[in-house]
């Protein structure tokens, strides 16, 4: 195998890889799309990204109409997914607007494992948690509490914010991978 010299590699990277830190957006965001075999105007098209536990972290164009996610497409300017999503990605409108979504806080009424709940307000939910966190710290100490999270949403911001609270509280720390 002929080995490229350092200069050749440097030149090749400049030629083949876009420069860092500069938006790669080139295609104007659309204002309309097709749906049910007709052309529809949408309220807006928003660029965002998929954050499942997957290598690709696809760029998404999200089509919004009447407050709903009408369609998703791959960002044509994203160098990895280059305009397409996958079998899962295209189900996002169905997922976001699924009638099966948990719609409000639920407090258990049955035995554990039965899945029986009643609707409560966020206010009640926060009070319920805070009361138990205080009691737990009183009785067992702060390390009796922890979060459990992994890659359901592999986005990185949320876990830093939870991490700030957990550090301040003194919770046990979840580490590792699987």
């Amino acid at each position: 195998m002929r080995r490229f010299s350092a200069e050749e590699i440097r030149d090749l990277v400049v030629r083949e890889v876009p420069p860092a830190g500069i938006s790669l957006a080139r295609t104007p965001l659309p204002t309309k799309t097709t749906w049910e075999d007709r052309t529809v105007e949408v309220d807006r098209v928003v660029k965002t990204a998929c954050s499942r536990n997957c290598y690709d972290t696809c760029g998404i164009l999200a089509y919004v109409k009447d407050g709903r996610l009408l369609k998703v497409e791959g960002d044509p300017d994203h160098p990895i997914n280059r305009g397409t999503l996958c079998v899962k990605g295209y189900t996002y409108p169905q997922r976001v607007h699924s009638p099966d979504r948990v719609q409000h806080p639920l407090l258990r009424t049955g035995e554990r494992g039965e899945g029986k709940f009643r609707r409560v307000s966020w206010e009640e939910a926060f009070d319920w948690i805070c009361e138990r966190l205080h009691a737990l710290r009183e009785r067992w100490g702060s390390e009796a509490f922890m979060e459990y999270l992994y890659s359901g949403n592999r986005e990185f911001l949320g876990k830093q914010v939870s991490g700030r609270f957990l550090a301040l509280f003194g919770a046990s720390k979840l580490v590792g991978s699987f």
Binding site: E36, V72, V87, Y90
Partner: peptide, 14 residues
């Protein structure tokens, strides 16, 4: 055989 065309068609055509 990734089936992306299937869910894409479903999404596009509701």
């Amino acid at each position: 055989g990734c089936h992306a065309c299937e869910t894409a068609c479903k999404m596009e055509n509701n």
